[in-house]
Measured scan of single mutants.
Amino acid sequence: NQASVVANQLIPINTALTLVMMRSEVVTPVGIPAEDIPRLVSMQVSRAVPLGTTLMPDMVKGYA
């Protein structure tokens, strides 16, 4: 089972991601792979992401 990136806190719209905002977790459906966490740092979210939400490619500007 592949771990995905999950929000560790509420991430407001247009916030630049930092390591403390993200954790890896095995979830369904699968989201952005956990190994991409270093690449996500400083990228902005395109919408508010609630705590515990799996990050999907369309939620991060410039990821897809």
Rank of each mutant, 00 (worst) to 15 (best):
M43S: 08
M22I: 10
P12W: 04
G31R: 02
A34N: 05
V26P: 07
G52Y: 04
T15A: 07
A64I: 12
S24R: 09
M22W: 02
Y63F: 12
V30R: 04
P38T: 14
R47D: 06
L51P: 11
P50D: 15
V60W: 02
I13T: 09
V41Q: 05
E35V: 10
I37F: 03
S4M: 02
G52R: 04
V27Y: 03
L40V: 05
L51R: 11
N14L: 08
P12E: 14
L51S: 15
D36G: 06
A3L: 14
L17W: 02
L19G: 05
T54C: 04
M56R: 11
A7D: 01
I11K: 00
E35D: 11
V20Y: 11
L51M: 15
P50W: 06
L19I: 08
D58Y: 12
V6P: 01
Q9H: 08
A7W: 02
N8W: 05
M59K: 02
S4K: 01
R23A: 05
Q2N: 13
V60Y: 01
M21V: 03
M22K: 00
G31Y: 02
G31L: 02
P50I: 08
P29K: 05
V26G: 04
P50G: 09
P12G: 08
A3C: 10
T15K: 05
N1R: 03
A7T: 15
A3G: 14
V20D: 13
Q9K: 11
V41P: 01
V26I: 08
S46K: 15
A48P: 14
T15N: 04
I37Q: 06
V45K: 00
V30S: 14
S24T: 12
L17N: 00
R39D: 05
N14H: 09
E25W: 08
I37E: 03
A7P: 01
A16K: 07
M22V: 06
T54N: 02
G52M: 05
I11R: 01
M22E: 00
M43P: 00
I11V: 06
T15I: 12
P29R: 03
T18S: 08
G52T: 02
N1K: 05
A3Q: 13
M22F: 07
E35M: 09
R47G: 05
L55S: 00
G62A: 09
Q2L: 15
A7Q: 01
V45Q: 00
L51K: 14
D36K: 09
L55I: 15
